[in-house]
């Protein structure tokens, strides 16, 4: 008969009894925030009207603002928090873009010949440009709902929670947004069809 080796298991509360490092915890949370949501933030910024050239900077800015207020964000509410920051920054970026357009109006006719020929654009970029045009016509509440449902594939319940509105309002906004989207795309298709027939 052999004697079983004595095994001394580590105490169950070992991890819990160790002193916590708040600074390290905060860093870990911040890093997870970036890793877990950076694509979401970038898409929200882009689909909410932030010009392509500004998206990276606005992504950075979103997380800097979030880092400053991180202690006020409850666990699990990070995505909603980031979404609101990104939405505000996108609005700011659109305003800046509108001002740039006004300033550069004099140079535009010359530049368009140089840069906007179909050959100069890839199909993907053309689709992105066209999508920007379609979304830019939507009112902000409709656009946010449309973006979250169609691009982020969130349910109406999730969107309702994120935006802090009733689920019925989400459904209503989504219906209107989809009608607008289809009407505009349909108009483009119809115009193209007429063009081909003449």
């Amino acid at each position: 008969m052999t004697t079983a080796a004595v095994y001394e298991a580590p105490p169950l509360d070992r991890g819990l009894s160790m002193p916590r490092d708040p600074a390290r915890d905060r860093e870990v949370r911040l890093r997870r925030l970036v890793d877990g949501h950076i694509d979401f933030v970038a898409r929200v910024l882009r689909n909410s009207g932030t010009p392509q050239a500004d998206v990276d900077d606005e992504v950075q800015r979103t997380f800097i603002v979030a880092a400053r207020r991180l202690d006020d964000v409850r666990i699990g509410a990070e995505k909603s928090f980031l979404f609101r920051i990104a939405l505000n920054l996108a609005a700011h970026a659109r305003r800046t873009m509108a001002r740039r357009r006004e300033v550069s109006a004099d140079q535009a006719p010359e530049q368009i010949e140089r840069f906007a020929t179909p050959e100069a654009l890839t199909d993907q970029k053309r689709m992105r440009e066209l999508l920007d045009r379609v979304l830019d016509k939507m009112e902000e509440p409709l656009r946010a709902t449309f973006v979250l449902h169609e691009f982020e594939e969130m349910s109406t319940s999730e969107i309702a929670e994120l935006l802090g509105i009733p689920r019925g309002t989400v459904a209503s906004r989504l219906r209107r947004a989809r009608i607008e989207f289809r009407e505009r795309v349909g108009a483009i298709e119809a115009l193209g069809k007429r063009e081909r027939e003449t």
Partner: peptide, 27 residues
């Protein structure tokens, strides 16, 4: 479908009205 045009829609772009401009992150 990827050969659709780069085309502005029939109406001019409506300026977006932001709800609130957040404080800049400059530190």
């Amino acid at each position: 479908p990827v050969h659709a045009p780069v085309v502005a829609l029939a109406q001019a772009a409506e300026p977006a009205v932001p709800e609130e401009a957040p404080a800049g992150p400059a530190v």
